[in-house]
Design a protein around this nucleic acid. Structure first.
Length: 559
DNA sequence: TCAAGATGCGCG
DNA sequence: AAAGCGCGCATCTTGA
């Protein structure tokens, strides 16, 4: 007897598909509930087997690699050419569907063996259980506040016009957006001296052109008032121009023409560390332009332009110091554990070394300025001023267990060309060598991948999946709208806020510990923490930090 | 005229 | 000689 997908969706069911999010998206649009489907995604399986190797992930390429034959090219060409399936030869289309199903099935059986041999089955399922959640989240989109967007847009448009007039007077005929023209103007016409490294070599772009980005501009020594004036105007112009062209112009049009809501996609197989990436769904506008904005690099200052639907609250849950703590767990670093237990202010330590003063004399300004340096040495950062280097050295000494663990990773890559990490996911750096000075190629990536990967490709997705399904059962009117590496954003009715907060703590801490232990055999040595912020607009509201209540951590208000 | 590369800039 | 990691999008430049 034939059963429909809708029948199947009422009981637990494994769905085997290549790029399952695509199929799940169609099922969702047809009103089929997704909670009973466990996908096995052959694309994600291949991605997990690849680790950080850039293997092709389309079904055709994989089928060829496994010698499963190739699917018909004609339908592919028609699809690419934008032909609607209803216009395609029915016979060919049916053949193509059957061939896809057959290829995917054969691929599944082959991958199942390979994954088991490699100890990667659990990693694949961790990826796969995230897919239905992302499918639903992608379909929600995020809502802008029309009035707030319009006000910000008008003010930036005006300001940019003003800056443009002023800059044109100072740099007639120079295209402010052209690095080439800007470089000639700065370093030839105005005669600025380029930023140099400590050996006196100019810091150039990859192709040897002088840099004109904001960092380079702020390093220039302006001698005259008009030079100072120009630099100031140009830096402000770059910032405003980038905000307008990349973000606000799009927001404004979305509000005017698209009901103030826009969507993005999440990609599970794009990054080397297996964290997610995002890209915007492109929208066409009345001026003929077509553009999109992704969800993971929105300017922080513009979070306040987003609101929840139905007058609800926007709630952001954030993994506290996530990579630092996960690094501490992987290395069993007692100093990181102490820092977390005592709620130490890591940036204050940075500032005290940089400014050579005791920690209790560090000002807020010095502390904030030190933030950029704090975690640079965690991923192998070495270069900088003598004081920065002194700090990097101090970091390596203070967290010596972390550093020696990372060196151990580097040594095993030198020996084997690859590194198997805590989850089993393996990264490959073939041909890695040490040079005369003792510097190992790829060492920064080797320091980073195991930490970034466990933190943002395993821990947060699992927390998200637990939170999503707990909320579906207990606070069903909560709508999940975004996730950004260490955070989850949801729209929550005010009267359900307390209940939702409890679910966040339960999922980000207890359930995640349980999963990491049962599935991966990983006992997190440093407790995780989660901070929650709830407000009418995204990013507003008091932040409340919770450390693990069962591991001696404390609950405190963040400052 | 078009595609690919380079650059700059936003986020964690 | 130099050396934090990971992304996506807009714009300009380059080369065919």
């Amino acid at each position: 007897m034939e059963r429909t997908l809708k029948d199947l969706s009422t009981q637990p069911c494994v769905l085997i598909a290549h790029n399952a999010k695509f199929e799940l998206g169609w099922m969702r649009r047809h009103g089929i509930p997704l909670q009973n489907f466990l996908p096995f995604d052959t694309m994600l399986a291949e991605y997990v087997l690849a680790g950080n190797r850039p293997w092709p992930l389309d079904l055709d390429s994989i089928a060829q690699k496994y010698r499963l034959g190739s699917k018909g090219r004609l339908i592919d060409r028609l699809m690419k050419g934008g032909v609607c399936p209803s216009e395609m030869p029915e016979q060919l289309l049916a053949q193509r569907c059957e061939s896809d199903v057959s290829l995917t099935t054969q691929l599944f059986y082959l991958q199942r063996e390979l994954l088991e041999q490699a100890g990667l089955t659990r990693v694949v399922y961790t990826r796969c259980v995230t897919t239905p959640v992302l499918t639903i989240m992608e379909s929600e989109g995020m809502l802008l506040d029309h009035a707030a967007v319009a006000a910000e847009y008008d003010s930036l448009i005006q300001r940019r016009a003003h800056l443009q007039t002023a800059l044109t007077a100072l740099a007639a005929g120079v295209n402010l957006r052209s690095g080439k023209q800007m470089g000639e103007f700065l370093y030839t016409t105005l005669g600025f001296r380029e930023m140099k490294d400590r050996h006196g070599n100019p810091l150039r772009t990859a192709t040897g052109r002088p840099r004109t980005d904001s960092l380079a501009l702020s390093s220039l020594t302006a001698t005259t008032d008009s030079q100072k004036h120009f630099l100031k105007l140009k830096q402000e112009h770059s910032k405003i121009d980038s905000a307008l062209t990349k973000t606000l112009d799009f927001f404004y049009r979305v509000c005017e023409e698209r009901g103030a809501t826009f969507r993005a996609q999440f990609h599970q197989s794009r990054t080397r560390t297996h964290r997610l990436s995002s890209s915007g769904r492109r929208l066409g506008f009345s001026d003929g332009s077509e553009r999109g904005v992704q969800f993971q690099n929105l300017p922080r200052a513009y979070k306040r332009l987003f609101v929840a639907r139905n007058g609800n609250l926007i709630v952001e849950a954030d993994g506290a110091q996530l990579e630092f703590r996960v690094g501490g767990s992987l290395a069993h670093d007692p100093q990181i554990l102490r820092d977390v237990q005592e709620g130490a202010d890591v940036h204050r330590f940075t500032a005290s070394v940089l400014h050579r003063i005791p920690e209790d004399q560090v000002t807020k300004r010095q502390r904030d300025g030190a933030k950029a340096d704090t975690f640079k040495p965690m991923y192998g950062g070495m270069s900088g001023t003598p004081r920065q280097k002194a700090y990097y050295e101090a970091f390596r000494q203070k967290y010596h267990s972390l550093h020696s663990t990372q060196q151990g990773w580097t040594m095993s890559v030198l020996r084997d060309g690859c590194l198997r990490t805590a989850s089993g996911l393996t990264f490959y750096w073939p041909g890695t060598r040490m040079d005369q000075s003792g510097y190992v190629q790829n060492s920064s990536s080797i320091f980073n991948y195991p930490i970034q990967s466990l933190a943002t490709a395993e821990i947060i997705p699992i927390s998200l999946v637990y939170l999503f399904w707990l909320a579906a059962a207990e606070t069903p009117s909560v709508r999940f709208v975004n996730t950004v590496h260490d955070s989850v954003v949801a729209e929550v009715p005010a009267k359900e806020l307390d209940k939702y907060r409890a679910l966040v703590v339960e999922s980000f801490l207890n359930r995640t510990y349980e999963f990491m232990d049962k599935v991966y055999g990983i006992d997190l040595y440093v407790p995780l923490g989660v901070s929650i912020r709830a407000g009418t607009r995204w990013g507003e509201g008091e932040e409340v930090v919770t450390s693990d209540p069962y591991r001696g951590g404390s609950s405190e208000d963040a400052t």
